[in-house]
Design a protein around this nucleic acid. Structure first.
Lengths: 359, 359
DNA sequence: CTGTTAGCGCGTTCAG
DNA sequence: CTGAACGCGCTAACAG
C-alpha cells in the first residue's frame, strides 16, 4: 500500500496515557514486584513456570522498565557518558562515530556531554560523580586535575581517556610527537628548510596537549636534520580555520617567508591554504602545506596530512570501557594507535631545489 | 604556574564518595526537605531569611539536585530529546549543531537518539513516551505513523518535526520540490536537455520524503521546459556515496548519456563526481553535476548545489520547542526555510551548445 | 525459590 | 509560610 507509515509500535493495551509499571506486571502474573525484578535482571533464580508467567505478562502489557527509576534505585544509570569538546568538529564527529559503533553491539546507550565552554566541563564532571552515575565514561582530550581524577576514582566509574595520556588510567592515544616529526621530516626530505608551524596556543583554555606535542616533534625533526629553528616561524593561536589563516598570513608576510607550513590540524591547514590563496601563492609550487588528522575534507582538498585513525580510536575506547564495566579491575593499559603519512597534492619539492625556470 | 591542570571543582566538603542530598541541606539549614525543594524550584513562597539559610547550606555543601530523582518524582526529565537518523552524516551534524546552539542559552540539556536501524526508532519512541518523559522533543526526517503520533500526543510532549511535514504538528522544513525544480532549471538554462537524476529509493527503509520531493520538482521543471523525460535517466538506490557512484556509472554507460546529473544530496553528488572521474569524463566540460544541501564538502569540491540552511533549521527547531515547553498550546506553525542556488565549478554550458572545437 | 520490608532522592499533597 | 506523610518505579536485604 506504500503509505510510507511505520507501524511497529506495540499496541496500547493499557489505557491511553498511562504506562505499565512493574506493579502491573506483578499483579497480572500473580507474583510480587521483586520476583518480576528478578526475572528482568536475572539477579536470582526463579522457578521455570513463574518466570514464564512473568514473561507473558510483560509481553501482554508491553511493559518496559523505567530506566530512571532503575537508575535511582541502583545508583547508576545504564549508560556510558562521553565527555567531548566541540562535538561538531570534524575530528570529534569521527571519534564519536567510532564510539557509537563500538557501543552499538552492547545495549549501552551513550550520552554525549559536549563541552564548548570551560564551565561545561566542570558541570559535566559533577554530573558524572553525582548520586546516580553512569556505568562508564570516556573523556576525550581533557587533562583533568588530580582532584577531578580522585573524584572519578572515588565514584568508581570505569573511565577511559581518549586522545590524552593520563598516568595510571587507561588511555587510547597516538604518538603526537612522532606524528609532528613525521610531518616535518616529509617536508625536509622534499628539500624544505624554511618550515613554518601553525598550531594552538601553549596554554589554551582547555590545556589540550596534541598541538604542543606535535610542535615538539616538529622541533625535534628540525634539530635532527641540523636545520636552524627560526623562532618567528612558529605561530600559535586559538584553534580554528580563521585564526590559522591569519597566523599563516603573518608567516607569508615575512621577508624570508617559509616555503612550507606544518599545521597542527587539518582544520588549521585549510586556513593556511586560504591564506596562500588570498596572497596568490600557488600550492604546492610556491608553498607546501601539510596538516594532521586526515579529516574528510582533507581528501576533498587533496591535502597532504598525517592520518590519525579517529574512528578506530573511538571504537577502541568503547571496547576498553565495556571491558572495564564487565571487569572493573583490569590493568590500565595505554593503547597507542599508528599514524601514517598521506601524501596528496599540497606538498612538493622546495622551490630552491628546482631548476630556475621552474620556479 | 601553568601545570595545565584545571581546578574549579567544588571542594569535597562531604566525605569522599558520598554526595550531598536534599536532606543534608535541610538539616544544615535547620529546615525540612519540602522547604529546600521550594527554594530550589520557586514552587511556593519562602520567608526571606529561611531562603538565605537554605541557599547558604546549598553553597556550603556544593549541593546539586539529582536530575534522576527529580525526574522520577516529576515524571519528566529536564531534557529535550532529539531523534535523528544517522547523526554522523554531514547534514545531520549541521542540524544538530544548530540545535545545540539553540538550546545552549536555555539550561536544557539535549539527549541525542541516533537512529541507524529500523528498530532504533521504535525503541526511542517508546523511551520518549515512557514513565519519565523529556520536556520536549525534536524529530528529524521521520514520518511517524498515526499511532505513534497519537502516543506522542497522549504523552503530552511538545514535539517539533524537522525536515518533514506533519499535518497538525509544528514543523521546520524547506520546499524540497521547489529546490528540485530550482536545480533542474539551472541545468536547463545552461542548455542541457539530457539530465539524469540520482536519488534515494521511493520507499526506503525509513520513508524519508526529501529525495522523492526533489525528484518531483525535477520532473516538473523538465515538463515546464517541454523536455521529454527519459525514464531510464532516473536512478534510485540506498542513500550513500558508493551506491550513488554506481548509479551514476549506469547513467554514464548509456548510449545517449546525460550531459548533466542532478543528485538529490551532496553526498550522492560526490559519488557522481567519482563515477565521472573513473570514466575519465571531465567535469563540468563533459558532465555537469549539481547536488543538494551545501554540506561543507561541497565548498571544498567546488560543487554546484542548492543550499539548504541546515544549521539555521536546527536553531529554529530548538526555538520552537522551547517556546512550546513554555506555552504548551501554541498553534502548530509550519516554518519554511529558503533555498538558494549556489553556483560553483561543477556545472557549465551543455556541450552541444558549444562551438565544435570546444567540445 | 518467593514474599515482606525498606529505601534510592526528590516533589507534592495536606495540615497547621 | 512551614512541616508531616506519602508516592514516583525499581532494587536490595532479609526472612521464610
Amino acid at each position: 500500500m506504500g503509505t510510507g507509515y511505520r507501524n511497529r509500535f506495540p499496541p496500547p493495551i493499557q489505557e491511553e496515557g498511562s504506562v505499565a509499571t512493574i506493579a502491573d506486571v506483578a499483579r497480572r502474573a500473580g507474583v510480587t514486584k521483586p520476583t518480576v525484578s528478578r526475572v528482568l535482571n536475572n539477579s536470582a533464580p526463579v522457578a521455570h513456570d513463574t518466570r514464564s508467567r512473568v514473561l507473558a505478562a510483560i509481553e501482554e502489557l508491553g511493559y518496559q522498565p523505567s530506566v530512571v527509576a532503575r537508575g535511582l534505585a541502583r545508583g547508576r544509570l545504564h549508560t556510558i557518558a562521553v565527555v567531548v569538546p566541540f562535538v561538531t568538529h570534524p575530528s570529534a564527529v569521527a571519534r564519536v562515530q567510532g564510539m557509537v559503533n563500538g557501543f552499538r553491539e552492547s545495549d549501552m546507550p551513550v550520552s554525549l556531554y559536549d563541552v564548548e565552554r570551560r564551565e561545561d566541563l566542570d558541570q559535566h564532571l559533577l554530573a558524572l560523580t553525582s548520586h546516580v552515575r553512569p556505568e562508564g565514561a570516556v573523556i576525550v582530550s581533557f587533562r583533568l586535575s588530580p582532584v577531578d581524577l580522585d573524584r572519578l576514582n572515588a565514584a568508581n566509574i570505569p573511565t577511559v581517556f581518549l586522545d590524552v595520556d593520563v598516568e595510571g588510567w587507561p588511555s587510547v592515544v597516538t604518538d603526537d610527537r612522532a606524528g609532528g616529526a613525521m610531518a616535518t621530516r616529509h617536508l625536509v626530505e622534499l628539500g624544505h628548510s624554511r618550515i613554518g608551524f601553525v598550531g594552538d596556543p601553549e596554554d589554551g583554555e582547555f590545556g589540550f596537549s596534541s598541538s604542543r606535542e606535535r610542535r615538539t616533534g616538529y622541533r625535534q625533526a628540525l634539530a635532527e636534520q641540523r636545520i636552524e629553528p627560526v623562532p618567528g616561524h612558529e605561530r600559535m593561536g586559538p584553534h580554528g580555520r580563521e585564526v590559522a589563516s591569519e597566523l599563516a598570513d603573518e608567516l607569508l608576510a615575512l621577508p624570508q617567508r617559509p616555503t612550507a607550513i606544518f599545521a597542527a590540524s587539518d582544520t588549521q591547514a585549510i586556513g593556511v591554504l586560504e591564506a596562500a590563496q588570498r596572497r596568490g601563492l600557488r600550492v604546492p609550487q610556491e608553498l607546501s602545506v601539510i596538516g594532521f588528522d586526515d579529516i574528510e575534507a582533507a581528501a576533498h582538498l587533496g591535502l597532504t596530512t598525517v592520518r590519525q585513525p579517529l574512528a578506530a580510536s573511538g571504537l577502541e575506547a568503547a571496547r576498553q570501557v565495556l571491558d572495564r564495566v564487565q571487569s572493573p579491575h583490569l590493568a590500565a593499559i595505554r593503547h597507542v594507535l599508528p599514524l601514517e603519512l598521506v601524501t596528496r597534492r599540497t606538498t612538493t619539492t622546495a622551490p630552491e631545489r628546482l631548476p630556475a625556470h621552474d620556479r
